[in-house]
Design a protein around this nucleic acid. Sequence first.
DNA 1: CGCGGCATTCACAAATTTGTGAAGTTAAGG
DNA 2: CCTTAACTTCACAAATTTGTGAATGCCGCG
Lengths: 190, 190
Amino acid sequence: MAEDTARTAESEQLEGSGQLEGAERQPPAGRDAEAVGQFVERFAARLVEAGLPRMPSRIFAALLASDSGSLTSAELGEQLRISPAAVSGAVRYLSQQHMVSRERDPGSRRERYRVHSDQWYEALANRDTVMKHWEAALRDGVHSLGATTPAGIRLAETLAFFEFVETEMPGLLSRWRIRREELFGEGPRG
Amino acid sequence: MAEDTARTAESEQLEGSGQLEGAERQPPAGRDAEAVGQFVERFAARLVEAGLPRMPSRIFAALLASDSGSLTSAELGEQLRISPAAVSGAVRYLSQQHMVSRERDPGSRRERYRVHSDQWYEALANRDTVMKHWEAALRDGVHSLGATTPAGIRLAETLAFFEFVETEMPGLLSRWRIRREELFGEGPRG
DNA sequence: CGCGGCATTCACAAATTTGTGAAGTTAAGG
DNA sequence: CCTTAACTTCACAAATTTGTGAATGCCGCG
């Protein structure tokens, strides 16, 4: 996989928000570019294991690790050392999965991709559409195999489970929001 | 692909229990081999979309669609028209994910692979180990990026969400069991 | 109104993954 | 103790997927 990753990494534009360095900009590149990179790698690996394609995983992880929660295509490309095409493709994928949203900086036409703090696990829970597909397939199966056959019954049961989970989701999320409030006060950024 | 596989196939033990159709029953082989196959295809497709490899998906779907909830390697190979090697590999994968369990028929050394009615969605919920890995990665990230940086905070929040979900799981599952009882009486098979 | 920069799309090349055939291993049955 | 039938492992071939380079389209700015 030739991952001898170049070292210098002048990725200082990684900073986006109040990064009052001021002090000797001498310290290691960017902020802990090293540490950031490592985290991105690791977390992306988890996502890959979970079934997400490689590039989308890396990009998502990078966004998650960025201070502003958003990066432009160029920044992503540079940080991850991938071509604009790769960024484009991966970002399209993530948009379709509702895992990132695209914004437009008023001035330039650099597009920003962002993870809303909440959005992403809500998306994770919100597999609504996906769920629906599964349920459709299962319903179909119940019908095909016969609702009274053992297999049909098993399928019906599985279907019921999906429906049950769907039912539970709203409550779970609202409990989460409460807990989140407890832990973090009101959320800092959107 | 060489499909010269013997078709003689005494796979009648596929049936397990009462076959009480009534309406126009299609005499063709097995039961509705046609319909079964179609369901297996479709459901497997969903699983693939969800990130599961192809063969494991097909095998899992086939097991789900079988009346007894269990099939032998040979049966799987024949029904899906794949080689024993493919069955072996896929089944190993599924075992590792705890999506099937292996049994041993006392007499012959044909191995049976089975989906417990519950087991599989419990496994789906029980991504314990997986969860732990994610949490570890996140914890690591919080530390690397600094617990007070915006990115670090976002990560901590995500971590909290995972922990929260883990907390909720037991309750959710037990509510499910109750509901399951309501809907299906006491579960038929284990 | 035209220029300059960005992002997207297309087609291809490379790399990873997938599934098969054949040999290897273990265990039942004569 | 040997034969036989299964499952597993190994190495390879094929097919799908992945990421890049180059060309195209867009939009804001001068």
